[in-house]
Amino acid sequence: MNRKTVAPTFWQLYADHVRPRGSLLLGDATLMLFVFLPPAMLQAGLKLSEALGSRPAFLNAGEMIDGVWLLLAVGLICLDSTGKLLTLSISGWRAALQKKP
C-alpha cells in the first residue's frame, strides 16, 4: 500500500522561521504605512490647496506625483507579498517533504 504524502498546514509552512509570525506581520504592516503615508498626506494637502484656491497647474502636478507614488507603493507591496509568500511556501514544502514520517 502506497504511503500518501500529507500536505502541510498553513501554520506548518511558517513554523520554522526565526522571526515570530506576529512580529513579521506587524513589522511589515508598519513599513507599509510609511509607504502609503506620503501619498495620503499629499492628497490631503492637495484637497486643502483646492479649497484655498491654488492654481490648477499646481494641483494637476500634485495629482500626478500622488498617482505615480501610489502606483509604485501598490506595486512594491504586491511584489514584496508575492515574493514572501512564494519563498515561504516553497521552503515550507521542502521542509515538510524532508521530514521523515
Binding site: 506587524l26 508598519t30 503615508l37
Partner: peptide, 18 residues
C-alpha cells in the same frame, strides 16, 4: 529583527495620522 520601540512609535504616529 525585533519590532523596536522607535519603529512602533513612528508606526503608531503614522497610523494615527492616516
Amino acid at each position: 529583527v525585533r519590532l523596536g520601540w522607535r519603529l512602533a512609535v513612528t508606526g503608531a504616529v503614522a497610523a494615527s495620522l492616516l
